[in-house]
Design a protein around this nucleic acid. Structure first.
Lengths: 201, 201
DNA sequence: TACCCATCGGAACGGAACGTTTCGTTGAAT
DNA sequence: ATTCAACGAAACGTTCCGTTCCGATGGGTA
């Protein structure tokens, strides 16, 4: 250890960091995509990145921390904005399922859930991510409420919670290939009877 | 359990099975409760059961298989039957959350989800369990439909899926302590507008 | 140019756990 | 009393975690 630590990282000065750090993150992502959580070991990442294990541990305190950064690095899913809550939600879920399937970032998210069972850091990150008001579904529903599309006595958080729960469960049981009709049926059911009296629909 | 070999097992003759098998299952459950998924190792279970590792591997092909049997052995939750879908669902969720919290079978279920990320057997079991028509929520909703409480064009599977999803997600983010009012609010929202025209309520 | 020194990759370590093999013992069925 | 499968214990080879040591690299500084 050095004399003064970077609050975010843990080492002293950063001379050749960025190259190594990027190579390691990219290797970690590649390993997760190709071998899944079962094959995600620090040694595999080091081999792939042509880096030494100590280099990885210099920058990330644990396997969970590396996984977390790989996850956060994934680019976000487009949030549709069609001025209709039903279309927004259906579009978002289809985008999300496709993104999870095609970029394998679903694997990464599932890995995070798995890691959270044995690592406190990952558990806190997962709970924080799910509990925050910044979730995608939360934004979509809040926007619809601001638009006056939802009755006043409906709590947007409940709708957002249910939509997110649906997505998580379908990810966990490997059912990301639901046809649009199935998703729309669920969303339609979910939105049944929540229109505000003067809502524009 | 009988005296002769259980055909579901893999070995030929089974002379001293039942005692050992029970001791191992009980030890596995105790280890999971006391040390969680992080401490759930075959060696810990063997030590606790005063059994040899080969004995465990003789009866369960993998750690996942043992975990699966521990889970199935313990998942008894009362299914309320109050002639009201809302009361049934709220009661069931409260029972389930309490059961998950107090018996630590929530830990076991989460462990199963984690294990499913690195073991194909566990993944299949999880998908099968969630996809089957035998889920608790499915039974509750089907019963309400038979009772005529639900409009004909509502698919009970959608409601059941959403309720189960809610439960899973709250388990995964360690939010099993929701007050009854919160759960009731969600269920009320979920059941809004689904009553059949002539439904008894 | 010559020196300094933090970071680097590689090799090796101790510890834990997986799943397997080997061996001597136990005990129910014959 | 004999047989034979299941048993517990111990040890094995493997993989991986996270750490320690080492020699090499290559910018910063005089």
């Amino acid at each position: 250890m050095g004399k003064i630590a970077d609050p975010a990282r843990k080492s002293i000065g950063a001379r050749r960091n960025p190259d190594s750090a990027d190579a390691i993150l990219e290797a970690a992502e590649a390993v997760l995509i190709e071998a899944g959580y079962a094959g995600f070991s620090i040694e595999a990442v080091a081999r792939r990145a042509r880096a030494g294990k100590p280099t990885i541990y210099r920058w990330w305190p644990s396997k969970a921390a590396l996984l977390l950064e790989v996850y956060q690095r994934q680019k976000r899913v487009d949030i549709p904005d069609t001025a209709s809550l039903e279309e927004d939600l259906v579009g978002f879920l289809i985008n999300l399922f496709t993104h999870w399937r095609e970029t394998s970032s679903g694997s990464i998210f599932k890995s995070l859930i798995a890691e959270a069972q044995s690592d406190e850091t990952a558990a806190a990150a997962l709970a924080g991510y799910a509990g925050g008001r910044r979730t995608h579904t939360g934004q979509i529903v809040e926007r619809a409420k601001a638009r006056g599309e939802i009755a006043g006595d409906i709590d947007p958080a409940v709708v957002a919670d249910l939509v997110a729960s649906y997505a998580w469960r379908h990810l966990l049981i490997n059912r990301l290939d639901e046809p649009e009709a199935t998703i729309r049926k669920m969303v339609r059911y979910l939105l049944q009877g929540i229109e505000a009296p003067g809502g524009q629909r």
